[in-house]
Every structure is written in structure tokens, then in C-alpha cells.
Design a protein around this nucleic acid. Structure first.
Lengths: 151, 151
DNA sequence: TTGCCGATTGTGTATCCTTCTCAATAAGTG
DNA sequence: CACTTATTGAGAAGGATACACAATCGGCAA
């Protein structure tokens, strides 16, 4: 889990016989420049790029998001039902976790050194190569508790 | 986060004007009797019930799984791409987390009191009503590291 | 710089999980 | 026992994601 630059992306791609394309570089840049706490779905990313005049097909977007998640560059988040969100996978001390309301999807980010340590240690102990480690707390936010809405 | 019985399920359903049906009771029983470390997808559950002669429609299964997850009775797990898995949401000291290989989906369970504490404290601090708290570690298992397969 | 090989892209299509619709059924209450 | 309304089941619909394949282009070696 470390910060990525275009050249480190290129290096890691080449290591596996893969290629650095403008599309991959563009997508990496988008996530690098995203404010902390923001995350995008495939559709979000597609529309955002269109607005900027970058026409990258949805297929490529899906392929790239999955690729970068499996490389450990992006984190795959389950913040809402039905689709995934992605954000850059930042190392300590920017690494964080999510507290999510299952009713309205209001999400709060929080940090915890000890969790990251536990995750790192657990992966290491089992011989796994760590990509991402996220604590997801499912809960009901104060407003939704009061509302007493149907589930 | 506490253990559920038929009568506590009934009570909590009635509290909201809902009903205890044989289907809901049956599904709860299945999860209660599942060995620790096992988890089912909607499809798995459907087939398992068919084998036992319990014919519950897929629609009802999906509805019930979601309902129970939102009540905090079941945990929704993302152990593989494309579909969710469910397991009973057990309290301390059975509460556990998952270390998952993103390549082959090999999953290892592990426990951590401190994570559960952190999760509980964080939810409390924000006024959220805790339903579930799970650390998910995405990584590559030793075998897949050696295989050097394409992502 | 040029040419080649093969990875990657884009378009349209296919797939699969999950949700929805609605009439029929049945749980809970007085 | 009757009534109200939540729930079920069957099939259809929806939506996110993956796939197929021809066209394109990145990287490398001459």
C-alpha cells in the first residue's frame, strides 16, 4: 500500500508485460486529484471524464478500475447497494475506514492506526500480500433512527 | 449485535408492525445451524432449502436476507465478485473478520477484540446504532503469488 | 525511425444478480 | 371467526458488469 505515480504505475505494468495507455494514466490522475473523502463509481468516472472531454469507454473504465484495484492502487468500496465505489488507496497516515448508514448511505470516514496494524500483521502472518484493509461499519445514523422508517 | 432466537425475531418484527412467517423462521434456523465459518449466497440458500424440501421462492430469499441484514441479524459479506454472502451476526467472542485472496477467493477468518471495540466506539461517538462491523483484508495468498497469474 | 507483435480499446451484446409487479395467501388482532 | 394488511410466489424488468472481436496503438528491437 503506497502512493502511486505515473512512472511507478508504468513500472509495475511493465513488470507483468502490460502497457501504460493514456486511458490508464488519465484514470489514475483523476483519482490522484480527487479530494480526500471522495469516491467514484464507474458511471461517475465515465461522466466526469466526458465533462472534461476525455472520452473513455465504459468497458475500459470497468476494466481499469478492476485492474487497479487488483494491483492495490485503488480501493473497492461498498458504500451503497448495487454498485461499487473506488478511491485511491492511500498509505498511512491517510488510510481510513468507513461508517455507513444502511438506510440513507450517509458515510463518515475515520482513521485508526491500530486497525491498519492489525490488518498488516494478519496478512503477514498468513503469508498474504496485502492490497487493502478496510473496516466497514454498518449502522443506522441518528436521523434515520428518529425517522423510524421501514427497512 | 446479539444472538437471535425465534422469539426475539418475532418481537423485533412485531415492534415494527411486521410478521413472523414460516419462511423467515426457516431461514433464521438455517443460519443459526450453519457451522462457524460457513456463509451462503442467496442461491446457495435457495438450493439448500430445496434439498431439505423447503420450497421458498428466490424472491422471498432475497427479501429476507436483506431484511435480516438491515436488522443486524445477518452480516452481508463481499467474499467474491458478483454476489453477496451471508452469515449469522454473532456477538463477541464469536465475532470475526475476513482475509480474502482477490485472485482465488481463498478466505481466512480471524478474530480481533480491539477492532470490535474500535467499531463500537466509533459508531457510538457518532450516534450511530451499530449493526455490523467487519474488517475486510484484500490480499494475494501465497499460492497465487507464486503462480504469477494475470490479474 | 520503422515495423512488428500482442496488449488494449471501443462498440455492441450478453450475462447474471437482484428488484419489482401484482394477484393470491396468510399472519395477527379484536 | 372475520378483517386488515403484510407477505409470498412467479415471472418480468432492471441495472451493473463482463464479454467478443475487429481496429488500434504501446513497447521493443533492428
Amino acid at each position: 500500500m503506497s502512493a502511486y505515480t505515473t512512472s511507478s504505475l508504468k513500472a509495475e505494468l511493465h513488470e507483468r508485460g502490460w502497457r501504460l495507455t493514456p486511458q490508464r494514466e488519465t484514470i489514475l490522475h483523476v483519482f490522484q486529484n480527487l479530494p480526500e473523502g471522495e469516491h467514484l463509481s464507474a458511471e461517475d468516472l465515465h461522466m466526469l471524464l466526458q465533462k472534461e472531454g476525455e472520452l473513455i469507454s465504459l468497458s475500459t473504465i470497468y476494466r481499469t478500475l478492476k485492474l487497479m484495484a487488483r494491483m492495490g492502487i485503488l480501493r473497492e468500496l461498498e458504500l451503497a447497494e448495487g454498485h461499487k465505489h473506488y478511491e485511491i488507496n492511500q498509505p498511512y497516515p491517510h488510510h481510513h475506514h468507513h461508517l455507513i448508514c444502511v438506510r440513507c448511505n450517509k458515510t463518515i470516514e475515520f482513521k485508526s492506526d491500530s486497525i491498519l496494524k492489525t490488518g498488516t500483521k494478519t496478512a503477514q502472518k498468513e503469508g498474504y500480500h496485502l492490497l487493502d484493509c478496510q473496516l466497514t461499519i454498518h449502522a443506522i445514523c441518528p436521523m434515520c433512527q428518529r425517522a423510524l422508517l421501514p427497512l
